[in-house]
Simulated assay, not measured.
Amino acid sequence: MKIKTLLATSLLAGTALFAGNYNVDPTHSSADFSVKHAMISTVKGNFATFSGNFVYDEATKTLKSLNGTIQAATIDTGIKDRDDHLRSADLFDVAKYPTITFVLDEIKGDKAYGKLTMKGVTKPVVLAFENGGAATDPYGNKRVGLGLTGKINRTDFGISWNKALETGGVIVGEEVKIDVALEGILQK
């Protein structure tokens, strides 16, 4: 019995040796979104400044943890007036709520379960998860690629400003599509 316990402990310890801490490389990552405008077209944007870290077990090819922070004031849709309005108290209220955060709870198959916090409201979300795997770059750095995509309802997070259209409907859709591509660098 002791030999089995020792063997199991050794295997678990060996697996832990392959798990590494990775910092998100913002030059090879993106935090993008899209939302319907006037119910007829789609506006796309991104957040320019974000950071994060995760633990990835290369032996089992599994993500163990993930934490990310977006600087809400860096929202960019390519139109200054619209971006200023998005930063205002009507929508993201970046003066009061400067960050958006995501904390992973668990991965089950191709789904990532976690908690998203925007405008001071934390809600559970389920996102599609893509494990891009690991590679070593030409400079000897170990890298891992991950993807998270999905949809949220912005009003669930208190981002509810809108205007009615004469033709029916509203100016800004409630459903927001999220597309996050992360590349992390192993910390030595």
Score class of each variant (00 low, 15 high):
residue 89 A to M: 09
residue 140 G to V: 02
residue 160 S to D: 14
residue 104 L to F: 14
residue 33 F to K: 06
residue 146 L to I: 10
residue 140 G to S: 02
residue 3 I to Y: 13
residue 17 L to K: 04
residue 72 A to L: 05
residue 142 K to G: 03
residue 34 S to R: 08
residue 84 D to I: 11
residue 38 A to N: 15
residue 16 A to H: 08
residue 122 T to A: 10
residue 139 Y to T: 13
residue 154 R to P: 10
residue 140 G to A: 09
residue 178 I to T: 11
residue 64 K to R: 10
residue 155 T to R: 11
residue 76 D to L: 03
residue 188 K to M: 10
residue 109 G to N: 08
residue 30 S to Y: 00
residue 177 K to P: 04
residue 136 T to Y: 05
residue 41 S to N: 09
residue 133 G to I: 08
residue 45 G to E: 02
residue 91 L to P: 10
residue 26 P to S: 04
residue 182 L to T: 09
residue 128 A to P: 06
residue 3 I to W: 11
residue 170 V to S: 04
residue 6 L to A: 15
residue 63 L to T: 02
residue 167 T to C: 04
residue 167 T to K: 13
residue 166 E to D: 14
residue 36 K to M: 10
residue 81 D to T: 14
residue 57 D to G: 05
residue 176 V to D: 06
residue 64 K to C: 06
residue 136 T to R: 08
residue 70 I to V: 12
residue 92 F to R: 01
residue 166 E to V: 14
residue 34 S to H: 04
residue 107 I to G: 03
residue 31 A to W: 07
residue 148 L to F: 15
residue 53 N to A: 12
residue 113 Y to V: 07
residue 80 K to D: 11
residue 42 T to P: 00
residue 131 N to Y: 09
residue 49 T to W: 04
residue 51 S to Y: 06
residue 28 H to P: 06
residue 108 K to H: 08
residue 11 L to C: 11
residue 82 R to Y: 00
residue 159 I to M: 13
residue 8 A to N: 10
residue 119 K to R: 13
residue 124 P to T: 07
residue 12 L to D: 08
residue 131 N to K: 09
residue 167 T to D: 12
residue 150 G to A: 09
residue 105 D to S: 13
residue 51 S to Q: 06
residue 158 G to H: 09
residue 138 P to K: 03
residue 56 Y to W: 00
residue 70 I to Y: 05
residue 123 K to C: 10
residue 157 F to E: 03
residue 155 T to Q: 13
residue 180 V to R: 05
residue 50 F to R: 06
residue 153 N to F: 10
residue 43 V to P: 04
residue 136 T to H: 03
residue 184 G to M: 05
residue 74 T to P: 03
residue 163 K to M: 15
residue 171 I to R: 11
residue 180 V to L: 14
residue 183 E to R: 04
residue 5 T to Y: 10
residue 156 D to W: 09
residue 148 L to P: 07
residue 66 L to K: 00
residue 140 G to K: 01
residue 167 T to A: 15
residue 56 Y to P: 02
residue 171 I to G: 12
residue 151 K to F: 12
residue 69 T to F: 02
residue 181 A to L: 15
residue 152 I to Q: 02
residue 46 N to A: 05
residue 111 K to Q: 10
residue 57 D to N: 15
residue 159 I to Q: 05
residue 35 V to K: 01
residue 3 I to M: 15
residue 87 R to E: 00
residue 164 A to C: 14
residue 162 N to E: 03
residue 5 T to E: 15
